[in-house]
Structure formats: C-alpha cells, structure tokens
Design a binder for these strands. Structure first.
Length: 827
RNA sequence: GCCGAGAUGGCGGAAUUGGUAGACGCGCCGGACUCAAAAUCCGGUGGGGUAGUCCCCCGUGUGGGUUCGAGUCCCACUCUCGGUACCA
C-alpha cells in the first residue's frame, strides 16, 4: 500500500509560496473567477426549484460593521449551500438609501445628500465584494434611484385610488429636534427614536395608509408562519397588532346631542361605573376648555407633567354629566391624564372597584367606588387596598346579580344592543400608518393640491416626481418646483412637498429585486417566479416595524394583482447582535470593531469563518480577537495539509476493502461528518457545529497522516468532501484548493456530498454500561451480538460486578447500539 | 406589570427524539524546535478525594417531582437578556 505521509519540500521560494496560505492572493483569484464566469447571475428557470435568499439590505452609512458582516455571511452561506443542493438561487443586494443621516451629513459637511449616499454605497459595495458574497450585482438597486421610487409613487397612487391612502388631520408626534413627524413606532417611551427628544403633539395634515384594514389578516396569517419564523417575532407582532374584543357603549350626555362613546373589555362591570374619564385631547374637553379657564389651565399644566410620564392620577371635572345607559344614573365626566386619545375613543367608563387606574383616580379625587364583582370562590375582595380585577360573580347589579362575569358580559352586551346603546367590537392597538415626513432626502409624495379640485395624483405619465438632488437640504424648495398646473383643471396648484417614511421603500424592495429592470411596470412575471423570499435573514431589531410593513405591502401588492401568495418571507432567521465586552458595539462605548483591518490582516474567509463559528446565528455574539486567531490557525493548517498531500489528488477511487482498522475508522468519521454537517446546515443553521465537525475531521486526518496511515485514496476522499462542506463558509480557500488539487470544475458548482451508508457501518461498537444509571464500563462488542450474549458479557464484566455483587438484578434496560443499564436492588 | 427567550468549565459554546455532560475553539499549564523570540507541533486542563495512567464522590442557576436513567420532561422560584407598557 502506498502512503503519502507529510512531505518535506525543498526550501525553494515557489514551494514556499504555495505552502503558505496567502488569503489576499487566494481571494483575488476566486473572486476573479466568479466575476469572469458571472457565477451569481440568477436566471429564471421555470420548473427548476428556486431559492430566493435575502439578507436585509443596509443603510449606506459609509462602512460595514460587524453586524453586517455577520448577517451577510449567514445569508451567503445558506445561498451557496442551496446552490450546491441544486437549487436555482437568487441572492441580490441593494441599499436602503433614503433617510435622515444623509441630511445630517449634508448639513455638517456641506455635501449633497445624494452625493454622500452614493459615495457611501460605493465604499460599502467594495467591502461586500471583498468579503466574496455571491450577489447578483446586476440586480443592485438603491431606493433613492428614481427608477426605484417611481414605482413606489405609482403604487401609492393606486392605493389612493382605492381609498387605502388617505389624508387626515391628526395629532401627530412632533420631534422638536429633528423637526419632523414621527410614526407611533418611532416614539420610544415618549422620545424620538433618533434624536431622543421629548415628543410633542401637533395637529398636521398627513398621509396615512390603512393598515388597520389588514389588521385581522396580518394577525391571522402569523399562525401559518409558526415554525418558520422565530416564535419571539411572531409574538411581538401579535402584541403589536394588539387585538382585543370588547363592547362599544354610548353614554348620553346631559344637554348634548352627541353621545359619549367608550370602549370596554369588561361590560360585566358596567353597573359599577361611577364616573367617566376623557383624554385631555378629546374633542369635548378641547371644546369646553375654550370657555373654561380653570380647565384650560389644568390642561396646560398636565401637558407639562405628562411629558415626564407622571403617574399621578390627575384630573379635572368638566361640569358635565353622562347618563348610565341602563339605570339613567348621572355620572360626572372628568378629564383624566391617564386616558389615551390614541386608543379606543379617548374616553373610558370608570369602574374604580374593578380597574386599578380608575381606583387610584377615584381615591385621589374622592369619587365613589362601587363593587359589582365578587370573587367566585365566595371570599371577600378588599377594595380599600385596591381594585379587584379578576372575573367573578356579579353583585349590586340589579337583575344581573348572581351571573358569572362571562354570563354578565353576554347579558349586558345583549341588553345594550337591544336598546341601541352599544355593540360588540374588535379593537386593535395597531394604528393606520402615517407615512408623511417633512424631510428632503426621501421619496416625494406624488400628489398635487389644487384649490379647486382638492388632492389630485400626479398623472402616471409624469412619474417619477424626481427629487432635485442638486438642492441642498437647508435651501427652500423653489416655487417653480412647487407650483404646477393642476392635472384636472389646469389652474396653478401646489405639489405635496412631503416625502415618504423610508419604511415604505423597504417594504417592497424584495419584490423589485426580481424585476429590477422592468421599466414599464412595478413588477412582472419574474416576481411571481422568485417570490416569496425562501429565506430572509436580518436583525431582531426589525421584528416589528419593517417586517410588519413588508407583510402589509405584500398583501397590498397581492390585491393589486402584482404578486402571488400571502406572505413575502417564507422563512425568517433573526441573527443576534454582535457584542464586545458585554455591550453592543457603539461609539459611546468605544468598543467598535471595524471589519476592514481584520479582513486586511486575516482575509475574508477567516472573518467569515469566525462569525459563524463563535456562536449559533440567533445568539448574541461576543467578539473575541483570539477567537479570530484560532480560526485563522485552522485555515492555515488545512491549507498546509492539502499542499502536503497534493499528489493524493491523482489517486484512484477508494477501495474500502484495502483499509486497515484506523483508516476504516477515519473513513467512518468522514461519512459521519458529512451526515452531520448536511443536517445542521440545512435544518438548524448551526454553522458553528458544522465547522467544529470539520475541525475534528481535520485533526483526525492529520493524526492518521502523522502515524503513517495516509492512504492517498482516503485522503483524497476526505479532502474532496471537506472542500465541498467548507465551500459555502470559506468559499475562496475552497475554490483555490479545489482547483489546485485538479478536481473538476468549480467547487461552488459541485453537488453537496452524500454520506456513504456502507462506510457508516461498523462491525464492532462501543456500548456504555451503566449500573443504576451511572456509567461503570465501556464494552467493545460486535454489532450483531445476540441479546443473551450481550447480557452475559455485561453481567460478567468485572467493573459491573463490583456494583452488582450481593445485589439483585431487577431488570436490564437496553438501548440498541448505545447503552445498557443494569438496575439492581439490595438483596 | 405583561409577553418572549435564556442560565452548562476561566471564556465562546457542544450534547437529533430523555441515554457516556463539557465536542470544537479560545485561554492557561507543561514539553519539543530555536542562541532567543515569533510561528509551528505534542501533551494536559470541571471541582474534590485517592493517587503519578486505575478508581471513587460531586457537578449543567435554586428547590422539589416524574423516570431504570434528566442539561433535556413537569411544578415552584431566582437571576439575566430582548420586546412592550397608563391599551380601558
């Protein structure tokens, strides 16, 4: 038998160069090959199993950070793996290019937002290319391209025509620092999500998208994503949509025509209502405050207090009575600082005995507390200590006494309905999506305001309404841009000068990648071929906003006949954050690790390998410089080993019969590795264990080689399989080594290796022997050993006997090919 | 408060359906090579006892339980992280 153990090479420079792993040269070569052969140009192949792999596109801030590197490495690994599995893979990349930072940069550096953005895109594109991600760059798009936002404007007009986009004068969140309106989602604990400034309320005319029309479907179809999306994300979306069932009740107001409408989830407590509470922003409150100085002063005062999120139960009587819908009892109407205008109708029926906030408010202001629910178990509720909010049995409720809360709920709802004073309704926490922004670096709203005709869409032939990119953001918009003839009557009219929320652009880019160059339609049949995205990868921070809006847009596009299916992203993987020293990398912590110098020093493959190896994709990743060093060592070792065994490449096919025991063992290890890696990469995305398995295999292979057992055909079989398994993770190194070994074609086009069942078989195996569940011995036994023989060998074993001596064997548990547990009892 | 996820060596993390806890990597210790260092290679590395390779006990946040057997399942709790919060 010929062996090819470690060889010493003459100390000539040419050999030296090859034996030394030079990532830069390797990466240049592989990337050149991919580029020249257009390896990642995706084509629609009807009938072929397609796989659309998408990573969330970046905001072009100027430099990639570790989070990007991690995100895109995960995506690229999955995409390359699917390709080796024979799928027709699409993996595009683009830029979420509109947004505030460009305007800020423009102000600070006296550059134009467009120029700043496009410069950043160029720099980041180079960084992505350097990392060797297999993107179809022909499909690259930036949301600030007029060819892109043109179709967003077109689509918005379709929504407008359907009544799904509408204008509403509404109280909106005003960020006094950024000077803009914020969506509810952009307000975090009363502060602007970017500026951190305390948000004020202002009334402005805004464009809204009727996402609430789709609330029920957005909620319902989450069930079908179960098992495909992380449960955490599904739950967060459910909470955000916030469906709640209840009853809308109309209370008559003394001396007023219009009744007061409230929403409650507890109509069973209706008989315990002792006062009404309105939000400070409620129209009735606003109206009365115009003539009531005391109330006016109170509102001014509480507006300031509420900014500090005061929990004091402040309020003021309005001097107005409501009438109980069933008893006609007079109930004083108050304004209360804890009532929210944005939820329900901005008014509540207060039941202090059974709602904690109402209880506190009543206590504070000396309002009556009337118990109408008693604990079902007959115990006493202590209403001096607080409210009793559990369901129970109705008391002090007249004809409803004795009913359970559930029965009372139904009976009272029925009675209200009969009297025309209320009905069951479903409420959502989700609000219509305000999409107008008073920003310059965004997609212009394609609408014209005419004094005669009202709001008129820009005619489709005039799209896109292009931004004047030469105009600095601080300059006023010129009159000649703003003033245009009304498309309907021809009289001078005004363009809408607002732009869209950038979440609008990112809600449909996944579809446009499919039809990136369609110039006469937003989408075409190619979108039907590629969609939905089979695997979407991105940060957990987008669990609510982006993912909800994109789901909404997909349904809108579906209803416009543009796409098939109900959901845009079939599978979602949310990668964890990248931490350093226990904190998120940020300037303020001073712990930012820039990928660039690492790529410079170790090469792209090492960086890719490390971000996958350090932890499973969903976990937060603790950055470790020495961990990178370890990954670099592995690649160097692998490289060197391959070069020391190059001649094994010409070995003939493996002959399993000719292998000795150690070689057979290694071959079994190889095929076990193939089986394991295929499973974890495909099913679990735990690339860390896939890498570890390959490290183990290399260690074993090197030990065998060291011991002189490196049969060329076996080495060849190992290397061929390892290069394929590592190709999605460290594609450059795999590409070059594959070629240097003289194997056919390019490794990225190779089929994924299959485990050879016969190689997995063994004649003897190790069986763990336990006595009462504790490991006491390991036995090497023939796999086809009979049950009796096995029992005998186990019970005759000296180590086992030490623990069974003088005891009674009660039973023997057998797990085939794995374990035997002898259960004994004191005799 | 509510919802969700998690807790395993000095560290990151392994451990299909309950079946040898700590794979792989880092770090550390010892050794080889070297004038020396770097690089590389070899060996060791959960705690304790005994002891130079055997062997025993303990050990997966805490306390219970189910089971022949629990990191894994059940109950209660502690802590950490993420989301959300006056939602009527």
């Amino acid at each position: 038998m010929v062996t090819c153990g470690p060889k010493t090479f003459p100390d000539a420079p040419s050999f030296h160069m090859q034996e030394r792993y030079d990532p830069e040269a390797v990466e240049r070569e592989a990337q050149e090959y991919w580029r020249a052969n257009e390896c990642f140009a995706a084509k629609e192949r009807p009938g072929a199993r397609k796989f659309y792999c998408l990573s969330m596109f970046p905001y072009p801030s100027g430099r990639l950070h570790m989070g990007h590197v991690r995100n895109y490495t995960i995506g690229d690994t999955i995409a390359r793996y699917r390709r080796m599995r024979g799928d027709n893979v699409l993996q595009p990349m683009g830029w979420d290019a509109f947004g505030l930072p460009a305007e800020n940069a423009a102000l600070e550096r006296k550059v134009l937002p467009g120029a700043w953005t496009r410069g950043n895109i160029q720099a980041m594109r180079e960084q992505l290319q350097r990392l060797g991600f297999g993107y179809d760059w022909r499909r690259e798009l930036a949301t600030c391209d007029p060819e892109y936002y043109r179709w967003e404007q077109w689509f918005f007009i379709q929504l407008f025509k359907k009544g799904l986009a509408y204008r509403k004068k509404a109280l909106v969140n005003w960020d006094p620092v950024d000077q803009t309106v914020l969506a509810n989602e952009q307000v975090i604990e009363g502060r602007g999500w970017r500026s951190g400034a305390l948000v004020e309320q202002r009334e402005v005319e805004q464009w809204f998208l009727r996402i609430t029309d789709y609330a029920e479907e957005l909620l319902g179809s989450l069930d079908r994503l179960e098992g495909r999306w992380p449960t955490q994300v599904l739950q967060m979306q459910r909470n955000w949509i916030g469906r709640s069932e209840g009853v809308e009740i109309r209370f008559a107001l003394e001396g007023r025509e219009e009744p007061l409408t409230v929403f409650t989830t507890r109509p069973d407590t209706l008989m315990g209502t002792t006062y009404m509470a309105l939000a400070p922003g409620h129209p009735i409150v606003q109206e009365i405050s115009r003539t009531n100085k005391e109330l006016h002063d109170f509102l001014n005062h509480s507006a300031q207090v509420s900014e500090e999120l005061a929990r004091d139960r402040e309020g003021h009587p309005l001097g107005l009575n409501a009438l109980h819908p069933l008893t006609g009892e007079e109930l004083p109407v108050w304004v209360a600082n804890f009532v929210l205008m944005e939820y329900g109708s901005g008014a509540v029926m207060s039941v202090p005995a059974h709602d904690q906030r109402d209880w506190e408010f009543a206590h504070h202001h000396g309002l009556p507390i009337r118990q109408v629910i008693a604990p079902a178990d007959g115990s006493q509720a202590d209403l001096d200590a607080g409210s009793y909010t559990e369901w129970g049995v109705l008391v002090n409720s007249g004809e409803f006494d004795g009913l359970s809360s559930e029965e009372g709920y139904a009976a009272i709802t029925r009675r209200l309905s009969e009297q025309g004073r209320g009905e069951s309704v479903v409420r959502y926490r989700l609000h219509d999506w305000g999409v107008s922004r008073q920003r310059r670096w965004g997609c212009p709203v394609p609408m014209i305001h005419c004094g005669e005709c009202g709001v008129v869409p820009v005619p489709e032939k005039n799209l896109p309404v292009a931004l004047d990119e030469a105009l600095p953001p601080e300059a006023d918009i010129p009159e000649e841009w703003k003033t245009v003839p009304c498309p309907e009557c021809g009289r001078p009219a005004q363009r809408d000068t607002d732009t869209f929320d950038t979440f609008v652009e990112s809600s449909w880019y996944q579809a446009r990648f499919c039809s990136h160059d369609a110039d006469d339609a937003m989408l075409d049949d190619r979108a039907r071929y590629w969609l939905p995205v089979d695997q979407y990868i991105g940060g957990i921070e987008h669990a609510i906003l982006h993912l909800l809006y994109a789901r909404y847009f997909h349904k809108l596009m579906r209803d416009e006949g543009l796409v098939d299916g109900d959901e845009p992203f079939a599978h979602l993987l949310t990668q964890g954050m990248v931490l350093k020293d226990g904190h998120k990398m940020s300037k303020s912590w001073g712990n930012v690790v820039d990928p660039e110098p690492l790529i410079e020093r170790y090469g792209a493959d090492t960086v890719r390998l490390f971000v996958l190896f350090a932890s499973p994709p969903e976990h937060t990743l603790e950055w470790s410089d020495s961990g990178v060093e370890g990954c670099s060592r592995f690649l160097k070792r692998f490289w060197r080993f391959v070069h020391q065994h190059r001649e094994c490449a010409s070995a003939a096919g493996i002959e399993a019969d000719g292998l000795d025991a150690r070689q057979e063992e290694l071959r079994r290890k190889l095929h076990e590795t193939i089986r394991k890696v295929g499973h974890v990469v495909e099913q679990r995305h735990t690339f860390n264990t896939a890498i570890a398995a390959n490290m183990e295999l290399l260690n074993d292979l090197m030990h065998l080689s060291e011991a002189g057992g490196a049969e060329p055909a076996l080495v060849r079989e190992c290397l061929e399989a390892m290069l394929r398994m590592l190709a999605p993770i460290v594609p450059h190194l795999s590409h070059v080594l594959w070629r240097e070994l003289g194997f056919d074609g390019a490794v990225l086009d190779q089929p994924w290796p299959e485990a050879d069942e016969t190689a997995l078989q063994r004649s003897v195996e190790q069986i763990v022997v336990q006595v009462n569940g504790k490991v006491r011995a390991h036995l090497e036994l023939a796999v086809d050993i009979s049950e009796d023989e096995l029992r005998r060998k186990v019970l005759d074993n000296a180590k086992v006997q030490r623990f069974t001596e003088g005891k009674t064997v009660v039973r023997i548990i057998q797990v085939p090919h794995k374990l035997v547990n002898v259960v004994v009892r004191d005799a």
